[in-house]
Design a protein around this nucleic acid. Sequence first.
DNA 1: ACTGGTATCGATACCGGTACCGATACCAGT
DNA 2: ACTGGTATCGGTACCGGTATCGATACCAGT
Lengths: 335, 335
Amino acid sequence: MRTKPTLVEVAALAGVSKMTASRALRGASDVSERNIEKVLRASEEIGYVTNHLATSLSSQTTNLIGVVVPSLSNVVFAEVLAGISDAIQESGKQPVFGVSNYNAEVETGIIRDMLSWRPSGMIVTGLEQTEQSRKLLEGAGIPVAQIMDVDGDAIDINVGLSHVDAGREMARTLLNLGRSRFAYVGSALDNDVRAQKRMQGFCEELSRENLSLVESRTDEGFSSLPMGRELTADILRSGAKIDAIYYSNDDMAAGGLFAAMSAGVDVPGQLLLAGFNGLEFLEGLPVRLATARSPRRQIGAEATRILLEAMKQPLSRDERSLVFRPEIDLGDSIS
Amino acid sequence: MRTKPTLVEVAALAGVSKMTASRALRGASDVSERNIEKVLRASEEIGYVTNHLATSLSSQTTNLIGVVVPSLSNVVFAEVLAGISDAIQESGKQPVFGVSNYNAEVETGIIRDMLSWRPSGMIVTGLEQTEQSRKLLEGAGIPVAQIMDVDGDAIDINVGLSHVDAGREMARTLLNLGRSRFAYVGSALDNDVRAQKRMQGFCEELSRENLSLVESRTDEGFSSLPMGRELTADILRSGAKIDAIYYSNDDMAAGGLFAAMSAGVDVPGQLLLAGFNGLEFLEGLPVRLATARSPRRQIGAEATRILLEAMKQPLSRDERSLVFRPEIDLGDSIS
DNA sequence: ACTGGTATCGATACCGGTACCGATACCAGT
DNA sequence: ACTGGTATCGGTACCGGTATCGATACCAGT
C-alpha cells in the first residue's frame, strides 16, 4: 500500500512541470490543449486525487462551510441541512456537519474543531452560544450565520423566526377559537431553548387575557412521541378540566393524540391539540392536529445564500438578517 | 480583520522557538514546565487556534473519518451516526458526514471529495457502490467499513445484518402465526437496496410454502408515514382479501395502521402489519405493530471500533466482519 | 578533569499544492 | 531586422505546521 500519487508524479508522467499540471487540472487558462489532454490522461491513469490539505494551505482559502446543529434525530434539522445542501450546490463549497446534542459546551468544542480547519463560513443553530463560542466565531474573521431563532442578539448573519412570537400567535389563535383552559406539555426545557421561548410567548399571550396554564407537564430526556403520549395520559388521568394542550412540538402532540384516543377523549372537539413545526407525518395521522409550519428548509437555504454572498462582499445590516413567520395550520381543529 | 495568529507569533510572544511552542501545545515531552506555561499563556492571550491544514499536511496524517449515509431525514441513520460519534469519542478522531440521498453517483462524488481531505478511515453505507467508488476506496490506502448490509462482497470491513434473512425471518414468523395472504407496501425500490432485499427474502420464504404476494404497492419518492397510509388505503379499497402486510419500514407501517383504522379494519386481528427497524415511536402508537429491531446504534459503534483498530494494525478476515441478527418484535400481534 | 547520560531547545528540511513572476517561442507590423 | 504582443510554460518562494537531528547545558560517576 504505497502512498497516494502526488501532482509531481502526474506531471512527470505527462511530461510537464507540476505548475502546468496544476493549472491543467484546475481548468485554468495558460495551458495548451495538448497539455491539458496529456495531464488529464496521466491523472486518470495513476488515479490521482487532489490533496485539499495542500491546496487549502497553499491558497489560504478552503471550500469548507461548518454547520452545527443540536440534533440529527430531529427531522427538523435534517431538513435544515437539506436546505443548506441545496443552496450550497454549484458554489463549489462543501458543508461539514457537527452535532452538539443540545449542549453548549459540546458546541464550543465542535466550533473550535471546525475553525481549526479554517472554513470560509460557519452556520450555527440558535443565538445562545457560550461566551467562548462567540469569541471564537467573532475572531475567526469569516461570515457566521445563526439560524432558526431571531429572539436575541446575533453575531453576524441571522435567519429564522421568532419563537416567542410563534408561541404568542398560537395562543392568540386558540383563544380566538374559544378555548380557555390550557395545558402545556414539553420536554427538557433546559436544552431546547426555542421550545422554551414558544412556551413563554404562549403564556404571555394568555396572561393578556388574565389566563394562565391550568396544567403543565415536562420530563427529562428528548421529546418523542411516546413521551408526549405518556405526559398527556398523565394530565388526562388527573381529571383536570382543559380544552386545549400546547406541545413543544409535533412529535409530542402526536403522542398526545394517541393518549386522548385511548382515553376516549374527542380531538379536537373536547380537546384541541397544537404542536409546532408542521412535519409531514402529521398528514398521515387519524386527526390533523393544529401546528405552526416552520420554513426550515428555506431557513437553511436562505442562510446559506446570504452566507455565500457575505463571503464575496461585506453586507449591510439589513441584508444580514431575514425573519420568517411561521404559518399556523389548524388542520381539523377548524370548523 | 487581520489574519489569524500563527504558531510563530505565539512562539515570539512566549520568547521561544516555534518548535518549542509546537511541542508545548501538543503536550509533548522535551519541554520545560516553565516554557509550557509561557506558551500556553501566550496562546491563550492572542487566541491561537491550531491550523489543522498545516498539521495534517506536515504530519501526513489526519484525525478525520469520513462517513457517508444515504439520508438524514431517516432516523435510522441519525442513530447510526450517534453510534459512530459515541465510539469515536476519546479516540481523538473526528467524523465528517456526507449524505448521498440514495444516489450512487452522488455518493461517488462525496467519496472523492472526502478522500481529497485524506481521512484516516471511511465508513460508507451498504455494499452497492459504483465501480468508481470501489476503486477510489480501495486505492485510498485506508481502512474502509461498509455498514448496515452484509448481503454481498465487502471491500474491507463489514458490519451489519442480512436484510434478505430479515425479510425471510419475518415471513417465516408471520406464516407461523397462521397468516397466509400477504401484501407488500414499499417505496422507491430502486433507491433503497436494503428494503428491496428484505422484500426479496420475504418472497423467497413465501414461495417455499408455494405462496406469493397477493398484492403489492410501491410509489416513487421516499418512504413516509403519509405514503404508507395512502398505499395501504388503496389496497384496502381494492377489496383484496389479505391478512398481513409487510412494509418497507416502520414509518410506512404506521401509515398503514391509520389507513386500516379509518377503514374500520381490525389490526392486528383481521390484518397484521409488519414493518422494519423497531423505531421508538412505534411504542406510542394505538397498536403496537410487528417489526424487526435493527441494532443501528450498535452497528455504527462496532463498525467504528473495528475501523479504529484497523487503523493501528492489520486485521484478520474474521475480525473485519460482524453480523448482527435483527430481533423480531411482534408487539400486539402476538396473542 | 574527563566521560557519558539526560533534559531541553532550535535550525532545517520537508508535506503537496498554488501565487507570482520571469523566460521562451512565435508571429504580425513597420 | 527589429519591436512588441500573445500564448505557453517553469522556477522559486511560500502556506503553517511537524520530524529529525544536532547543539547545548548540566549533572553524576569515576
